[in-house]
Amino acid sequence: MWTFTFRRVLIMIPQILLLSIVIFFLAKMMPGDALTGLIDPNIGPEAIEAQREKLGLNDPWHVQYWNWITNLFQGDLGQSFQHKLPVTEIINQRLWNTFWLSVLTLILTYLIAIPLGLISGRYNDTISDRIITGYTYIGFAAPVFIFALLMLFIFGFQLGWFPTGGSVTPGTVPGTWSFFLSKVYHMLLPALSMALITTVSTVQYLRSEIIDTKQKDFVLLARSKGVSETRIYRKHIFRNSLLPIAAFFGYEISGLIGGSIFIENIFSYPGIGQLFLSSLMQRDTSVVTALVLLFGIASILGTLISDLILSIVDPRIRMK
């Protein structure tokens, strides 16, 4: 078990290294550089050149990469020209907003997926199954951003049940109970909008796993022992069907990142998804680079978590 975990963590090092190199070059290939946004059009080309030399933008690529990566380890991701602040500071503010939004989305995703998948798989080809699969087809077909806009329009503007922007009511004091509630209240609609769409693949997956598992020999053996149907689903089918879902968890995180860009923009939620889009529009290279790196690391961590979960629940992997 520990060898497995250690090995698995070790593999991440070259993965992240490779990721950083790829991102570095992509950033270099983008039109403009860290200087472009800062330049006052009145300054002459000699001064720019001098500035470039000073910032090390004329060094060979490996020197530049080395400088970038060492700065990175010291927590220096450069300066955002748009906000005139260090990138770390900007990201830090919003990272937690996005993190909690993602956690809530994930919780809602599974809260929806597990009961629906269970009902649909256990009573397949019944009315309730047809309704659930019907919902999943709609979920597959509807793009997140259209659905989110619709939710915002209905529940935010028409009915006014939820706030239509921000992450907390202005004026609440951090650390208080009402601050916490306000945070959750602001997250609920965006998280639900995203969860209702992203959950459908998990529902479908769980459904087909359960249909598959309930025909397995060990389920028949359990029946022949006199185990009641409820217990069969609880003790024998459910856990075996969840294994592949656990393996899916990592991809779920990558999906959340993509989704957060839409969701945060639509709900004007101050998270890194929103930051990413605005920085991209403004050519704020250092912020974009830092965010892409962050997204990449999050995906790699996601697969790590998947593998670890799988190794905990599946003895066949654990024992190896």
């Binding site: 020999d217 022949s224 022992k225 006199g226 024998h236 075996n240 599946d314 003895p315």
Partner: peptide, 18 residues
């Protein structure tokens, strides 16, 4: 399981792997 016991063909798939 109490009065009537059953034995199946394929022992490799008849037990719950978890």
């Amino acid at each position: 399981g109490s009065e009537i016991g059953m034995i199946f063909q394929d022992p490799l798939t008849a037990l719950n792997p978890l």
